[in-house]
C-alpha cells in the first residue's frame, strides 16, 4: 500500500519535474506507436475493405489468418522481426535492429492484423443496399466503395482505437527489437520493466501513471474525432 501511495506521489513529482530523459522516453513511445498505427491504418484499412468486398479463392483463409494474428503475442512479433533483422537474417544488412525503426516494424506486425481484421468486419456488416443505392444514384464503383467505407467508419475508428491501445501498452515487441537502450530505444513500457528490476518500484509506478494518462488523452482525442463525425448519431435510449 505504501509502495502504491509512494508511486502515485513520485509519478506526480516526476511529471512536474519535467525530467528531460522522461520527456524523451515519452515522446519516443508516442512516436513509435503513432507511426506504427499510421502504417497499420494505411495498409490495414484498404486490406480489410478489399477482403470484405472482393470474393476470390483463398479469401476465407487469409481472413482466418488475419483473425488469428489479431491475438499475436507481442513477444512473438518481436522475435520474428528480430530474426529477420538480425545480422544473420534476410534483412540483416539494413542494420535496423535496436533502432526505433525496428520497433515500428514490430508494432506494425501487431497493429496491421488488428486494423485489417476489424475494418473487414466493419465493412462486412454494411448491407448490399448501401452499394446498390450508391451506384443507382450514379456513383462510380470507386465512389460507391468509398461510401461503404464511410458508412463503416464507426467500426474503422474503433479498429484504430483498439490498435493504438494495444501498441502503446505493449512491451514484448519493443523490448525484443529495440533493446531498451537509454536515449535511443527506451520507451515508457520498457522503462517500467527496467526500473522495477532495479528495485525502483515507485519510479516504475510513476512512469506507469504517465502511460495511463497518455492512453487516456489519446482515447479522449479519438472519442472527440468519433463524435465529430457522428454528430447526428445518438445513443440507444434504455428507459
Amino acid at each position: 500500500m505504501d509502495v502504491i501511495g509512494q508511486g502515485v506521489k513520485e509519478g506526480i513529482l516526476l511529471i512536474l519535474s519535467l525530467d528531460p530523459e522522461l520527456i524523451q522516453v515519452t515522446l519516443l513511445s508516442l512516436q513509435v506507436s503513432l507511426s506504427a498505427l499510421l502504417v497499420s491504418g494505411l495498409l490495414g484499412i484498404p486490406a480489410g475493405t478489399f477482403l470484405a468486398l472482393k470474393d476470390f479463392a483463398g479469401r476465407k483463409l487469409i481472413l482466418n489468418i488475419i483473425y488469428t494474428l489479431m491475438g499475436l503475442p507481442p513477444v512473438l512479433a518481436g522475435l520474428i522481426v528480430f530474426l529477420v533483422l538480425s545480422n544473420r537474417g534476410p534483412l540483416g544488412e539494413w542494420q535496423l535492429l535496436f533502432t526505433p525503426s525496428a520497433m515500428v516494424i514490430a508494432q506494425v506486425l501487431l497493429g496491421f492484423p488488428l486494423v485489417a481484421g476489424l475494418s473487414a468486419r466493419a465493412v462486412m456488416s454494411q448491407r448490399q443496399e448501401a452499394y446498390d443505392t450508391a451506384v443507382m444514384l450514379g456513383a462510380t464503383r470507386t465512389i460507391a466503395i468509398l461510401s461503404i467505407i464511410r458508412e463503416a467508419r464507426m467500426g474503422i475508428i474503433a479498429a484504430l482505437t483498439t490498435a493504438l491501445g494495444r501498441l502503446i501498452a505493449e512491451v514484448g515487441a519493443v523490448m525484443m527489437v529495440g533493446g531498451n537502450i537509454q536515449g535511443k530505444t527506451r520507451v515508457l513500457t520498457t522503462s517500467i520493466v527496467l526500473e522495477t528490476r532495479m528495485g525502483h518500484d515507485s519510479r516504475a509506478l510513476g512512469i506507469g501513471i504517465i502511460l495511463l494518462i497518455l492512453a487516456f488523452i489519446i482515447m479522449l482525442l479519438i472519442l472527440k474525432l468519433e463524435k465529430r463525425s457522428f454528430k447526428d448519431d445518438s445513443t440507444i435510449q434504455i428507459i
Binding site: 448491407r127 443496399e129 448501401a130 446498390d132 443505392t133 443507382m136 444514384l137 461510401s147 464511410r150 458508412e151 457522428f230 447526428d232 448519431d233
Partner: peptide, 11 residues
C-alpha cells in the same frame, strides 16, 4: 434512378 420499399439512407 431507383426507390425501393424501405429505402437505404446514408448516414
Amino acid at each position: 434512378a431507383m426507390v425501393t420499399q424501405s429505402s437505404f439512407m446514408f448516414e
